[in-house]
Structures are given as structure tokens and as C-alpha cells.
Design a protein around this nucleic acid. Structure first.
Length: 112
DNA sequence: AGTAAGGCGGGCA
DNA sequence: GTGCCCGCCTTAC
């Protein structure tokens, strides 16, 4: 692990950034992408999470779409919704109510 | 090794 | 609200 490929860095950034999202809050793929310096790599972020198997250490379920929709989930969208509800996130018909307020804004002292 | 397709989205028409 | 295309990483053939 001395030499870390750029790919690892990409994933690492995504995971680290996502880990910073507190419980009860959510984030979007777009914001994550921007936070890691790849505003157009939104899909790539989704892939990184999809590939990610560190469910316990990385709250993948706290990542939603920009439009407030829950989005997809490898283990099933239903599960994702359930997990979000567990965190007091109000969900209505696969959409996060008041997601604007639930969104956790990064950007600030990102020390990557 | 190179090529091709897929994927947990976003923005715009 | 719907549909289309784009851009970006990963995985499979």
C-alpha cells in the first residue's frame, strides 16, 4: 500500500468523504463528486460505492440523488429506504422529504 | 493487452 | 414531469 494508484485515491476520497457524513444527514452523488474534485464523475462515484463492500464503515445508504430521490442501492432500494428511515430521514414514495435540509454540505477543511 | 459494456447519476431540452 | 446525452470509473470478454 505504499504505492496507491489513482483509482485507489478516487475511491479513497469517496469513502472518506462519505464517512464524514453524520447520521441523520444525507449527501448526493453530485456533491460527493464535486467534493473529491470530479464534478462530472458523478456516475463514477456511484460505481465506487457500488463496488464498495464496506457497508458498516461507509454509509452508502446516506447518498441520494440531487433531486431528492433515494436512488439505487446494490442491496435493494427498499433496504436503502429502510436504513434511511432508521436515521429519522423522512421518506415519501422513494423520495426524501425536505432533502435540501437533510443534505450535509462538505467543502471546508477537506484535508485529503 | 486492448476493447466493449455497464453502472447506485446529473444536467439540459 | 419526461426523455436524451454526456462524462467518468470498473469489470468482463
Amino acid at each position: 500500500m505504499e504505492n496507491e494508484p489513482e483509482l485507489a485515491i478516487f475511491e479513497k476520497k469517496v469513502l472518506l468523504t462519505l464517512k464524514k457524513v453524520p447520521r441523520g444527514k444525507v449527501t448526493t452523488y453530485s456533491k460527493l463528486a464535486k467534493a473529491i474534485g470530479r464534478p462530472n464523475a458523478v456516475r463514477a462515484v456511484g460505481n465506487a460505492l457500488h463496488k464498495n463492500r464496506n457497508a458498516p464503515v461507509v454509509p452508502c445508504h446516506r447518498v441520494i440523488k440531487s433531486n431528492g430521490q433515494v436512488g439505487g442501492y446494490a442491496q435493494g432500494t427498499n433496504k436503502k429506504i429502510m436504513l434511511l428511515k432508521e436515521e429519522n430521514i423522512v421518506i415519501k414514495n422513494r423520495r426524501v422529504e425536505n432533502f435540501r435540509k437533510a443534505i450535509y454540505n462538505f467543502i471546508f477543511t477537506n484535508n485529503l
